[in-house]
Nucleic acid binder design. Structure first.
Lengths: 143, 143
DNA sequence: TATTGTTATACTCTATAACTATA
DNA sequence: TATAGTTATAGAGTATAACAATA
């Protein structure tokens, strides 16, 4: 038997700690975790239905409705009925949404650099980030 | 701005996936996640109060009571009132508990090797595990 | 009065089911 | 009838508060 904690224990604890550390930063920018995830995902490209967005970010379709209501009301996203099929809602991020997202993500990644990555040497850091991005990219969709 | 997903997003998703993959293995061994965590922690050394154990594993003291009831009933842990202070319960793992824990952890780590670590070269694998254990060891207690 | 363990209650998050409107 | 979105309801997991036993 290998003499190490389970990967799930180590990576799980690390992930929970990172997410917990993210919360105050999100709050400072007036975003919930789901709102942030939505802004990050919409930035890639507009999306045609709320159900597709929910699926893409691993949420239930009923769960993001209040999130979208709030983001739209604050002008961070644009939500318009599709003229071709008025059941669907065309979703896209606004310029204000992009600014909020950028500021928030910059603060989050700055904190991650200082709090976690600073413990690694530059070479370790490159190696760690590289492996992490490879493993992350190949993950099955939800979780 | 660095061009990568947030560490919290990558490590968080990886952690959730690993924990989800662990669940069926735990179920096959008749253990809940909390029961497994308790067995892992008790193996290090006996502990004198349930509150201390709960604190050590990052749980609320009220949350592990049912877990301990079940483990004791199945003979996987031993729970005795402390003769010196009958309010406290002396907790320790039994030989049967150790066997269950070993079998379960072996299955979990085998799956982790095959499912995740197999994607890395031997050198990457050593490097990844080393950095992970260093980062994990220095984590603030709960999460 | 303080502490350990327990039980009862409430709260948060999430998923399921039922409803409205468009097609 | 089928689909997108919404609302209402119920369930799991967790934390908070009240309680009983012991010190």
């Amino acid at each position: 038997m290998t003499d190490r904690p389970d990967l799930a224990a180590m990576i799980g604890a690390l992930g929970r700690t990172l997410v917990a550390a993210e919360r105050p930063v999100l709050r400072d920018h007036g975003l919930s975790m789901w709102a942030y995830v939505v802004l990050l995902h919409l930035d890639d490209r507009p999306i045609r239905t709320q159900a597709a967005l929910a699926d893409a970010v691993g949420a239930d379709k009923t769960r993001i409705i209040a999130v979208l209501d709030d983001l739209a009301e604050r002008g961070l996203i644009d939500r318009q009925p599709d003229p071709a099929d008025r059941r669907a809602r065309l979703l896209s991020i606004t310029e204000a949404g992009r600014r909020t997202r950028d500021a928030c993500q910059a603060a989050i990644q700055r904190q991650e650099e200082e709090w976690l990555l600073a413990r690694l040497t530059p070479a370790q850091r490159r190696s760690f980030l590289g492996m992490l991005q490879n493993l992350y990219r190949d993950l099955e969709p939800p979780a």
